[in-house]
Write a protein that binds this DNA or RNA. Structure first.
Lengths: 331, 331
DNA sequence: GCAATTGAGTTAAACGTTTCGCTCACAAGG
DNA sequence: CCTTGTGAGCGAAACGTTTAACTCAATTGC
C-alpha cells in the first residue's frame, strides 16, 4: 500500500520511521543487548514495512566482512566438480553467504588471476581445489581463511575423501571377483588424491595382486596413445583400475570401439561415482565419494574459521564406499 | 624489498607517496583528464610500488556499482549448464567482473532466495536461466539489467540457440535416413525451448513424418513410467527424438537394459551436444548448441547494458548444427 | 539520602572511495 | 591593464553502515 520499496530503504529511513536513532536501529537489527523491547519492536516493524535490507557494500566497508566466499575450481565441466559446486553453493546460501565462482580451466595463471579478483572483492574466505602442485606465493598476501577441497597441501586444512580407503576397497573387490592381474590407468602424478588411490590399491594385497602395466592419464579422461595401446594389449590383466570415472568411461568407450567387451573380455572400475557412472553401458562399478558431504563440510569448516575459530588446520577425511554395478565380471 | 604489501594499501597511502591529494590519485587512476602528465606518472608509480588495489566495497558504496554479476542456473549438474557456466565465468573474468553463482536446483523458491541474495550484494547485472514459467514479481524490485539465457520471457532480452532450426535439422536428417515414423520424448511443457524444438521438428515435414507417440519428460532425463512403456512398445516408430541429450542417453540406457539395440532396433537423436554425447555408446547424433558463444554473448550483452546502453531487449539467436554420430541407422 | 551502578539510547567518527565545487596561476583577448 | 578563460590540482562532502564514547534517568546499595 505505502510508498515503500522505492530505490532501497536505508537504515536512516528505518530510524525516522521508528522514531529512534540510526545507532539504535543498527543495534536492534544486530541483536545487541542495549536496546529496550519497545524500541526493538518498533524498529523491527519499521524495517519490515520498508522492506529494509542492509547495504552489503556499506557493511563491508565498515566491518571488513563481505559475507561472500570464493569457490575456485579447476573444471566445472567435470561432473565431480559441478556436483561439488552445487553442494557448496547450496550450503553457502543457507548460511547467508554468496558463492563467487572461479573456474580456472586447469590453468595456473587463470587460477591466480581469479584468486586476485576474489581478494579484490574482499571475499571472507575461499574454498579451493588447487590446480598447481605448489601453492602460489600470492597466498600469504591474500590473507583470509582457506579450505582446500580434495587436494591437500602442507599447512592447509582440507576436506577430502579417504582415497586410500577407496583404493583398498577396490583391491578387495578385485580379489573377491577373482582378479589377480590388473592394469592401472592412474590419474596425474602431481595430484595427490590420484597417488593415494593408487597407493591404497597396490599396497592392500601386494602379494596377491600383480600390476601388469600402469600408465598415467589426465583426470579429464583424454587417453594418450600409451594408454590406448595398453588397453588393447592388456598383457594378461583381467581388470583395469581407472583413476576416476571419467577415465574409466573413456576407456570403456575406447574398448567398445575396438570390439572388446566390458566386462566379458575385461573388467573395469572407476572412482568418484559421478552421476554418469550409472548411465553409461555397462553401468560402472566405482567408489562413491560423499560429494555432497565434502561440499557441505568444507563450507561449514570455512564458516567456523571465518567466525574467528582458531586455525588448527584439521584434515577432514570422509569415508568412501564401493558401488557395485555391472562393469566387473566374476571369474 | 620495501615494507609494502602490508594489510592493503589505501588510496591515501598512494597519495602521500606520490605527494599529491587523494582526489588527484583517484582522477589519475580513473583516467580523468584533469591531471597533468607529471603527476599522473608519479601516481602510477606509487600505486604500482605499493601494490595498490582499490577497495571494491568502498568503490561500490560511492558509485553504486560492484563489478560483480549474478549467474542463476537451474542445475549445475546438467552438463549443458556447467559448460555454460564455464563460458560465462571465463568471459566475465576477462571483463574484470566477478561471477556470483546461484544454483536453484530447479526450485522456484531457492531461485527467489538466490536472486534476493544477489540483489542484497548489489550485483550490477544478472544472467539468468529461469526455472519457473512466470517470472516472479520481485523482478521489478531488483531493478538491474538482466539477460536471460536459453529461456525467453516476454519483455526480457535473451540469448539462446535457434531451437526451431535444430528441430528442422533433425527432421531433415530423419527423412534422409528413411525414418518416417517417430516417437517423441519432448522436454517439459513449460520450458519454451522444448516447445520450439518440438515445433521445429513436427512442422518441418508434416506430411512426410508421422508422430507415432509423444510423451513429456523432465530435462533431467528421469524417465516416467509412461516414457518407459512407449520406448518398449514403440508402435512402429523407427526413430525416437529426445528433448535433450540427457533424455536421449537415459533412453538409450533403458533400451539397452531391455535388450533393444540402438541403432539396430531403433534409432535415437538428442539435442544439446553435451560432452557426454560423444562418450556414450553408441555415440549420440544430436544438435550442437554453441554453448561457449551463448555464454560469451550473454555476458557481453549484459556488460553493454550495465554500461548504460539502452535496453532494446534484443533476442540474440544463435545457429545450431547437426552432429552426425552413431545413434541413427539408415533404413 | 547520596553515591554508584545499570539500562536505554544518542552523537559522532570512521571505513575508502568518488566527485562537486573551489582556488590558483597563467595565458589570451580586448 | 583588466577581464575572461583554461588547465591542474585540492578540500571536503557524501555514500550506508557499525561502534566507541557519551548522556541521562532510574534503580540499587548502604
Amino acid at each position: 500500500m505505502a510508498d515503500s520499496e522505492r530505490s532501497m530503504a536505508t537504515i536512516k529511513d528505518v530510524a525516522v520511521r521508528a522514531g529512534v536513532s540510526v545507532a539504535t536501529v543498527s543495534n536492534a537489527l544486530n541483536g545487541k543487548p542495549n536496546v529496550g523491547s519497545a524500541a526493538r519492536r518498533k524498529v523491527l516493524d519499521a524495517a519490515k514495512t520498508l522492506g529494509y535490507r542492509p547495504h552489503r557494500a556499506a557493511q563491508a566497508m565498515r566491518t571488513g566482512r563481505t559475507r561472500a566466499i570464493g569457490l575456485v575450481l579447476p573444471d566445472l565441466t567435470n561432473p565431480f566438480f559441478s556436483q561439488l559446486a552445487q553442494a557448496v553453493e547450496s550450503k553457502a546460501r543457507r548460511l547467508g553467504l554468496l558463492a563467487c565462482l572461479i573456474d580456472s580451466q586447469n590453468a595456473a595463471d587463470a587460477e591466480l588471476e581469479g584468486l586476485s579478483l576474489l581478494a579484490q572483492h574482499g571475499v571472507d574466505g575461499i574454498i579451493w581445489c588447487p590446480v598447481g602442485a605448489r601453492l602460489p606465493r600470492l597466498l600469504g598476501a591474500l590473507d583470509r581463511p582457506i579450505v582446500l577441497i580434495d587436494r591437500p597441501r602442507p599447512g592447509f586444512s582440507v576436506v577430502h575423501a579417504n582415497n586410500a580407503m577407496g583404493g583398498r576397497l577396490l583391491a578387495q573387490h578385485a580379489l573377491q571377483n577373482g582378479h589377480s592381474r590388473v592394469g592401472l590407468l592412474c590419474g596425474p602424478r602431481n595430484v595427490q588424491s590420484a597417488q593415494q588411490r593408487r597407493h591404497g590399491f597396490v599396497s592392500a594385497f601386494p602379494d596377491r595382486i600383480q600390476i601388469a602395466w600402469e600408465v598415467r592419464v589426465g583426470f579429464d579422461g583424454i587417453l594418450p596413445r600409451e594408454a590406448r595401446e595398453a588397453l588393447l594389449r592388456r598383457r594378461g590383466a583381467t581388470l583395469v583400475v581407472a583413476g576416476n570415472d571419467l577415465i574409466a568411461i573413456s576407456a570403456m568407450r575406447f574398448l567398445h570401439e575396438h570390439d572388446v567387451q566390458v566386462p566379458a573380455d575385461v573388467s573395469i572400475v572407476g572412482f568418484d561415482d559421478i552421476s554418469w557412472a550409472r548411465i553409461v553401458t555397462p553401468r560402472l562399478t566405482t567408489i562413491a565419494q560423499p560429494l555432497g558431504a565434502i561440499g557441505t563440510r568444507s563450507v561449514e569448516l570455512l564458516h567456523e574459521r571465518m567466525s574467528g575459530a582458531q586455525a588448527q588446520n584439521p584434515a577432514l577425511m570422509l569415508d568412501v564406499s564401493l558401488v557395485e554395478r555391472d562393469s566387473v565380471r566374476s571369474i
